[in-house]
């Protein structure tokens, strides 16, 4: 598979009177052709800086980036026609209608005006196209932003929080749209905080924290990388749970008792549990591995899981997989 996007060692430092702040600290990312790639990270981790740098809006302090095989920002004008993008919240001139907005963009980009109605249809704004953008809800502006990105029939689509402000139906439509676009051969880079969505529609992900990549690969690979060895054990009703826990602890297991079951923390070979308990005439009614989802991996990798009684600050981010991929 060929890479549509390659970023290596990207650096960006913001300097102000208060001092310097590293927004990107040697960030790496690869997006393969035809994939829907999720780009995840907590607030202030460098996602938007990465996208803006990629699109030539911010000048990097170091690193290398290529889009569709062309080095950017040097060759950005040559590939800009093939890249559709929305960055952060959709921003349009409020007094123009959706059709005027897209028509002006089509003129500016030398795109056939017939594309305007086509993309309005795709994003579901056909019947509201003659209304001023300032009367639109956030979700409708988001749809218009996606329409503007699709206008030039891009090969590579960059969407920053496209589901922001959409209702549940809109989120599902967006998901279907992403899949349809990907099936048509378009590569999609999707930045989002809705991790369940990312898990559902993305083929691969990159997770960024504190300006560095902390995980990357297919969703399955990232989950497998952080696969849990925990096993949930439930016994027949009335069976002595404490006795069973004691027997397992005596064999070296880490056991955490819950109300009607217990968790074995280091169960790399779950069969051992049934064998050991059967030896004590204790029979297991349920033995299930504790699965991880993208959200728990994200919280673990970025160190942003809420801690009871503590108010986490935006900059309290830990790139916990400092020795992981790409480091």
């Amino acid at each position: 598979m060929t890479a549509v996007l390659e970023i290596s060692g990207l650096q960006k430092t913001y300097r102000s009177r208060k001092g310097a702040r590293k927004a990107l600290d040697g960030f790496d990312m690869v997006v393969e052709a035809g994939q829907v790639h999720g780009f995840l990270g907590p607030n202030g981790s460098g996602k938007t800086t990465t996208l803006r740098t990629l699109l030539g809006l911010i000048k990097p302090n170091g690193g290398r980036m290529t889009i569709l095989g062309r080095e950017v920002p040097q060759h950005l004008p040559e590939v800009a026609g093939l890249v559709g993008a929305i960055v952060e919240s959709p921003q349009f001139f409020g007094n123009f209608t959706a059709r005027e907005t897209l028509s002006l963009l089509a003129d500016a980009g030398g795109v056939d005006q017939r594309r305007v109605d086509a993309v309005l249809e795709v994003v579901g704004l056909r019947e509201r196209a003659a209304e001023r953008v300032k009367t639109y809800s956030l979700g409708m502006k988001q749809r218009l932003a996606v329409a503007s990105a699709l206008l030039k029939e891009p090969k590579f689509l960059i969407l920053d929080e496209p589901a922001n402000g959409l209702d549940p139906g809109g989120i599902r439509e967006m998901r279907t749209l992403m899949r349809t676009l990907s099936d048509s051969g378009m590569t999609v880079l999707l930045s989002s905080h809705i991790l369940a969505e990312i898990q559902l529609i993305c083929d691969s992900v990159t997770i960024i924290a504190a300006g560095r990549r902390v995980a990357a690969g297919s969703v399955a690979e990232v989950l497998a990388e952080h696969r849990s060895t925990k096993v949930k054990v439930r016994l027949e009703p009335g069976v002595d749970m404490f006795g069973a826990a004691q027997a397992l602890r005596a064999a070296g297991a880490e056991v955490t008792l819950e109300q009607d079951h217990f968790i074995v923390g280091n169960a790399s070979r779950p069969a051992q549990i049934t064998r050991l308990l059967a030896g004590h005439q204790i029979f297991v009614s349920e033995l299930t591995p504790v699965t991880v989802d993208l959200e728990s991996v994200f919280l673990q990798l970025t160190g942003t899981a809420p801690v009871e009684g503590a108010n986490r600050q935006v900059d309290d981010v830990a790139a916990t997989a400092g020795n992981g991929w790409g480091q």
Binding site: G56, A80, V87, Q91, F92
Partner: peptide
């Protein structure tokens, strides 16, 4: 000024990065 303020300028630069 309104282009900068409304974000229209950024939108335009995504289309024409010169």
């Amino acid at each position: 000024g309104a282009e900068w303020n409304s974000g229209g300028m950024m939108n335009l630069l995504l289309w024409r990065p010169r």
